[in-house]
Computed example of a mutant assay.
Amino acid sequence: MRNLRLCVCMLLIPFFTIKAQSVNSTHLKDTIQLQREQFKIKKLYVPVALIGLGIALNSNKPESFKNEIAEERNEHLFHFGTHIDDYLQHSPIAIAYGLDALGVKSKTDLANRTAILLKGELFNLVAVGIVKKYAHQLRPDGSNYLSFPSGHTANAFAAATFLSEEYKHRFKWMPYAAYGIAGTVGILRMANNRHYISDVLVGAGMGFLSMKLSYWTHQYKWGKRKH
């Protein structure tokens, strides 16, 4: 457990050292004013709380909270199984590009938006992979030791953050819809007996932070006018 906490703390260090800078938007092709998102410590409260709570609940004792939830699942949803979560985790990305294709412009132009997405997904993939390896937690269905954290949930929250950032300026309800989808993925991972609640909570926090880190550090070098 000590190694797990150390690993997660090391992953969070970069998030506390970022300094956001503004970018001159007059040289950009798109008419939307592009500016690197301002980093503020308070934006870490929710994801860090999710990760902290997930770690706190990640006890392997038989009577632990995560095992109690798993037992309730086995009692009431023993035969439940679906693959919807495999596709739903990526749906916010499809929605974002789909809206843009339909003419509903996003906050960021195509080149910069895609670069942000790829960086965020890479951050998420590496972070989740490292924690999975060193946490070495058995899945509730006993299939392997890659339970902690939930990769599907991390992917879903990274994608939801991407969709929210690109369209919350046009649709005030978009963050609720995006994170609602991501939360559904987390619930389905538990219903499918693939993850504990602790796995889902940490995955949610890590996915959110990974994509936000990509926005906070992006330089917006693409799409500038040539002189």
Rank of each mutant, 00 (worst) to 15 (best):
F39Y: 07
I41G: 04
K42L: 07
K42A: 09
K43H: 07
K43N: 12
V48A: 11
G52C: 06
I55T: 11
A56H: 11
L57F: 01
N58M: 06
N58E: 10
N60D: 15
K61L: 08
K61G: 10
P62S: 14
S64G: 01
K66C: 00
K66H: 00
K66Y: 01
K66R: 07
N67G: 06
N67S: 08
E68W: 08
I69D: 04
A70T: 14
A70E: 14
E72K: 13
N74V: 02
E75F: 10
E75R: 13
H76W: 04
H76A: 04
H76P: 00
F78K: 11
H79S: 15
F80A: 10
G81D: 11
G81S: 12
I84C: 05
D85F: 00
D85Q: 02
D86Y: 05
D86I: 03
Y87K: 05
L88I: 09
Q89R: 08
Q89L: 08
I95T: 07
Y97K: 05
Y97F: 15
L102H: 04
L102M: 15
V104H: 13
K105S: 14
D109N: 15
A111T: 09
T114Q: 12
A115N: 05
A115M: 08
A115C: 10
I116F: 01
L118G: 03
L118Y: 09
K119H: 11
K119P: 01
G120W: 00
E121A: 11
E121Q: 14
L122A: 15
L122C: 12
L125S: 15
L125G: 09
V126Y: 11
V126S: 12
A127I: 05
V128D: 13
I130W: 07
I130Q: 09
K132A: 01
K132L: 07
K133D: 05
Y134K: 07
A135R: 00
H136W: 06
H136C: 05
Q137Y: 02
L138D: 15
R139L: 01
G142N: 14
S143F: 03
N144C: 09
Y145N: 12
S147Y: 04
F148A: 03
P149V: 02
P149S: 06
G151H: 02
H152D: 08
